[in-house]
Every structure is written in C-alpha cells, then in structure tokens.
Design a protein around this nucleic acid. Structure first.
Lengths: 197, 197
DNA sequence: AGTTTAAACGGAGGCGCCTCCGGTTATCCG
DNA sequence: CGGATAACCGGAGGCGCCTCCGTTTAAACT
C-alpha cells in the first residue's frame, strides 16, 4: 500500500524536513563511531560538532543521551541481524554461521564498557531489549536452520542453547586475551556443531 | 587496649586534623539531609555551601559522589541498627519491635528514588551491602528474640522470614498511599506475631 | 611564644549538560 | 516564481562537575 520503507531504522518516519533528516542521520552515524571508540560517556557536544550541527539540534532530535544511545544500539542490532542473510548468500552455510557468530561477539565486545547505561536503558525501556533479542534470535535461527538443512551441522541443537553459549561470553572477565578466548570458544562450538563427513 | 572508639562511623580514623574532622562530619550531616530531601542527585556544590566549606574540600574528603552516598548510607544503616537497642530499653518488647519495623520502612522509603545510584554502588562495592544487611538482620533478630523470650510473640518465626516480608515493601508500586499501605502491612504482621493472651 | 612544615582549605577555571529563543530555511500555496 | 509560515537550526547562557594549585592553619618542635 504505502510506499516502500527501505530504511530499517525509522518505523513511522513522520515526514521530516530534508535538512532535519540529513542532520538526524549524520548524528546517528557520528554517534555510533564515537560510542564505539570512546564509550557512551563521550561528550555530546563533540558529537554535535563532528556532525556539523549545533548542540541544540542534537538535543531536539534526541531529548536525552539515552535516546541517542538507544537509536545507535538498535541500528547496530538491525545491522547484525541483516548481516545474517547477507552472509548466507556469500558463504557456505557453516561458514556463514561461524562468521556471524564472530561478528556477534565483536558486537558484544563494544557493549561491555557501557553496562551501566544499558542497564538504565533496559529498566526504562524493556521493549527495546525484547525486540532486539528477537531480531538476533531470528537471525541465528535462520542461519542454523539453513546449515542443518544442507547437512553441514547437526540438527539436535536448539537456537536457544547456542544463544546461551554465546551470551556466556558477555560474562567473561575483561582481559587482554578476551578476543582470542571468545574466538576459541566459537571454534569449539563450530567443531561440535559440524557433522563429521 | 587502645582508647575507646565511641563513634560508630570511623573505623580506623587515621588521626585527622581538627578542622578536617569537623568539616568531614558537617559534610556528612548536611549531605544526609540533602539526599533525604532532594535525592542523591542534589548538587554537591550546594552541599559544600551549606556545610560552609569550599567544593574542593568536599572532593578531597569524598573523591566521588558515590563515596559520599556510601558514607551517608552506612551511617543511616548503623543508626537504624543501634535504634533497636535503644527502643528495646524504652518500650515493651512487642512495641519496640513494631516501632523499629516502622522506622525500617521509613528508611527504605527514602531510598526508593535512588535505586540507580544504589545499584551502581552495589556492583562496585558489594561488601557494603553484605555488612549492611548483616547489621539490619542482627538488629531485627535481637528484637525478635527478646520479644519471644518475654512471651509477647510466637517463637516459630525466623528472622529471615520477617525480613523478607518487610523487604517486599520495597517492590510495592510508588503511590500516594504507599505509606499507609506499608503501615497496614506492619500492623498485620504484628497481629500475626503477637501471642493471644 | 616563635618557627616550621605538612596537612588542609577553597575557589577559579575548564569542560560538559541542557534549555531557551531569536534567526534561518524548506516547503507549500497562490 | 515569490511570499508566507511552520519547522528547524544553533549557540549563548546558566548550572553543575571536578581538578589544580596558591594560600592558610593546626600542630609539632625549640
């Protein structure tokens, strides 16, 4: 009925003026980079400056820091989910699964520092998290199903189990070897999943 | 051996200069009032001003807002615990118990708004909470025991049960009738506890 | 009492948060 | 195309955070 909605992030995009839309997008983009690099405590004035807008503009688009964090967070989650279909197209089912898990871990890594902000966000807006985890679950589920259908991996593993195994990474202690550790864990999981030929 | 340690709050009070000690005490006092009245987000500069010291002095004594919150929190907890013995001396055992529970509820009430700050504090310094709840537990236990020994209340109630019942107040929804509600709950508990004569 | 000195004070200053409102501009309509 | 106007922009300003360092002062010693 309505015209296509190509952008994933912007559910009921209420006819924004062209400049407003431009600024909004630029802000999210810059914020995503800034949060990733310096954590969610980065100066919002810096973000506004880098985006080439005034601080007032930032605050009109995102009434509070948490709002901005939420939008960035959701955008990345959606990116991660849509990467699943993309990977499935370009790789063999098991490779797609493995690569996706790697990215998932990388994504989690960037979120470790901001536990507090996320917790605040979580208590005040739990729908975001349920939707978000739904997206992730769906992505993983479809990768898993495809791989199983092709005979690459065993069938008797539930999405929930694997998700749980991956989430355990989140509670691993912070350390320099964190990255290797998590990659080893993924390797281990994949070895367990793959069917012996 | 060493000279008496009358003040409860100041474990290893490392020989502070007289002015320093004065300022420290005044700050805690003022902060307690300010937090109670306006929540933990109150301006620290206001607190310093009301205490008649410079902001620099406040920050030397309490490196961060959380430090100050913690000291105030602990002080109030200790006050609550020591109120138990005081009440026991002035009232009949069951009255002492009832009045103490009222105060406990009042104390909790002031802490409701600052859930976030307390959570941060909790994750970074869990010893405070275990010690704190130990104090409270001890106070309640002794009141309960005295009352039971005097035959005012039944013996078959565990401290933990009662504590749990009281804690449930914390999760009651915020509302105007909150206070009456909690008092009714205490009345109910006391009725259940008291032995029929 | 006078001297010394390390501990303590305090506030200026730089930064970030957030609000408010006068100025700008995209968009609509004749 | 030009004018009207509602939507949007931007940054000054007020406030609070926290640090840094020159000044003050308690207290130890002579």
């Amino acid at each position: 009925m309505a015209s296509a909605e190509p952008k994933t992030t912007s559910p009921a995009s209420t006819r924004l003026r062209a400049d407003a839309r431009r600024n909004h997008e630029k802000l999210v983009e810059v914020a995503a980079a800034a949060f990733a690099e310096k954590g969610v405590e980065t100066s919002l004035e810096d973000i506004a400056r880098q985006a080439g807008v005034g601080i007032g503009t930032l605050y009109r688009h995102f009434p509070s820091r948490e709002h901005l964090v939420e939008v960035v967070y959701r955008r990345e989650l959606e990116g991660l989910a849509s990467a699943a279909t993309e990977l499935a197209r370009q790789h063999s089912p098991d490779m797609a699964l493995e690569e996706w898990m790697r990215r998932f871990v990388g994504y989690i890594a960037t979120k470790r520092g901001m536990a507090n902000s996320l917790r605040i966000l979580m208590t005040s807006n739990s729908s975001l998290f349920s939707e978000g985890s739904g997206l992730i679950r769906g992505a993983l589920e479809s990768l898993l199903k495809t791989a199983a259908d092709e005979g690459c991996i065993r069938r008797d593993i539930e999405t929930t189990d694997l998700l749980h195994a991956l989430s355990s990474i989140y509670s691993m202690p912070e350390s320099p070897e964190w990255r290797e550790r998590s990659h080893r864990l993924i390797g281990l999981l994949m070895d367990g999943l793959r069917t012996r030929r």
